[in-house]
Design a protein around this nucleic acid. Structure first.
Lengths: 157, 157
DNA sequence: GTATATATTGACCTAATTGTCTTGAATTAT
DNA sequence: ATAATTCAAGACAATTAGGTCAATATATAC
């Protein structure tokens, strides 16, 4: 698996939050129900995202989570780096501790341009773009069919 | 991390075996010492590679492991698929159970061509090519400096 | 045949990841 | 003030990946 489950949940949650009206806190419980991911686990991930300055959190009634100002400009690379660290793209494919342009594993040279493409892709995918894609109805961030998703939305707003 | 440690060990071991004279069994212990990976753990991985028809194993004195006939044509994609299953490239980046060209996550379309490039690269990297690259002395499959690697080689042959 | 060397097997251990639960702190509505 | 609601924090449990060990089966050398 390319991304850890934790990164996947983080990305899904952030895209979902980005599709909601900004400044209006959304509950962790609602996000987890929507995405179908474990509530308590998502809560910890949301905490990391707060500590990583991607989200604001508010306690008490009317509380919840909001994107920070400018948060729509956050891209997937930032999120993944926050959760998994820089090793995600920097480490050697074969696991060598030392693998650079000078002293390389036999895959290094071929892998490098692909890695750069991956990084470029992850950088160009901002929450803003992803949220718009989802709002268009052509793309999904969870496995529930559209009908159920609408239903859940109606019930709560 | 893109590849699991297990896949990394498997690839390193197979490349190393491919650099040795074919038909001459090499000990698991020697491979693990050369690569600097846990002997007992590598033994289990070698077993998987036997069950996956990439290696032959021989017990008793003069025993060890050999590439199967034509094994030099084995490519990295085959090895990874054997160890991690097909999900490695087929699964959705965001972890959705359902994500195809028809019903997709918002990254799917952009990710697809990159994924294809990764798969193509992994397919063109055969043990034969990788072994030649390592034998040229320009590339490494373990973290030991060349001097120590030579030394280990001398001691045993 | 006996001893030695090797892979095989399965049980076991350890660490990391993923997931759960309980308690506490902060905020708001009444 | 009080009660209700929400996030924060840390302990805990379950699962998986990574790693170890001991007993066994098999082959070879002598």
């Amino acid at each position: 698996m390319i991304l850890s489950r934790t990164s996947q949940y983080a990305i899904q949650a952030l895209i979902y939050i980005a599709t909601r009206p900004p400044g209006e806190p959304i509950l962790n419980r609602k996000v987890s129900e929507y995405l179908g991911v474990p509530t308590a686990y998502l809560a910890k991930i949301m905490q990391s995202l707060c500590r990583g300055n991607l989200l604001y959190s508010y306690r008490g009634r009317q509380g919840g989570f909001c994107l920070r100002e400018g948060g729509e400009k956050t891209d997937l690379m930032q999120i993944i780096t926050l959760i998994e660290g820089v090793g995600f793209t920097e480490n050697c494919v074969l696991g060598l501790k030392i693998c650079s342009d000078e002293t390389a594993c036999p895959v290094h040279a071929k892998w490098k341009p692909i890695k750069e493409k991956i990084v470029a892709l992850l950088h160009e995918q901002t929450l803003e773009r992803l949220a718009i894609a989802v709002q268009s109805g052509r793309y999904r961030i969870c496995d529930l069919p559209m009908a159920m998703m609408d239903e859940m939305g109606q019930k709560e707003i």
